[in-house]
Computed example of a mutant assay.
Amino acid sequence: MISDADEVRVPLVEERVQVEKVEVETDRVRVRTVVDEHFETIEQVLQTGRLDVRNIPLDQEVAEAPAPRQDGDTLIVSIVEERLVKRLFLVEEVHITQSSHAEAVSVPVSLRRMRAVVEQDAADSLPTGRE
């Protein structure tokens, strides 16, 4: 058996760490914006229209005014007048023809794009944090 005199006591030790943070400015940057401009050519087909108007003289007696009518691409509008004999006369017809024309065009346009530029400030103007 072990007696009290033979008993050895071993102290237990525990280390603990406490961390403290100190904020130190180590670097600085400057951000600025720059606008870059470049040119591109836009190509597009433009559709243009045109009306051709022709007056066709007529001198025909009619019972009533003819309604406007379509003949292919041509709209025909009849012009009538009353005369002293109280009869209608078809004086003329107006022929209106619509046509169109397509034309390819190129237009240069300016396009701008903004970008950020990050620049590092000079290191000698900063505090070291060690004083």
Rank of each mutant, 00 (worst) to 15 (best):
S3M: 08
D4W: 07
A5N: 14
E7A: 11
E7G: 09
V8Q: 10
V8C: 00
V10P: 00
V10E: 14
L12N: 06
E15H: 06
R16E: 02
V17M: 01
V17L: 00
E20L: 06
E25S: 03
E25L: 08
T26N: 00
T26K: 01
R28V: 05
R30F: 01
R30L: 10
E37F: 13
F39C: 14
I42T: 07
Q44N: 05
V45A: 10
L46S: 06
L46W: 00
Q47A: 05
T48S: 08
T48V: 08
G49P: 04
L51T: 11
L51K: 03
D52I: 01
I56P: 07
L58P: 02
D59H: 14
Q60C: 09
Q60K: 11
E61Q: 15
V62M: 00
A67S: 12
D73A: 11
L75H: 11
V77H: 02
S78R: 09
S78V: 06
V80C: 03
E81Y: 02
R87C: 01
R87A: 13
L88I: 10
L88Q: 10
L90V: 09
V91D: 01
V91S: 14
E93H: 09
E93C: 04
V94Y: 05
Q98E: 10
S100D: 08
H101I: 02
V107C: 07
P108D: 01
V109A: 10
L111K: 15
R112V: 12
R112H: 09
R113T: 15
A116I: 11
D121Y: 10
D124W: 03
D124R: 01
P127T: 02
G129M: 01
R130T: 12
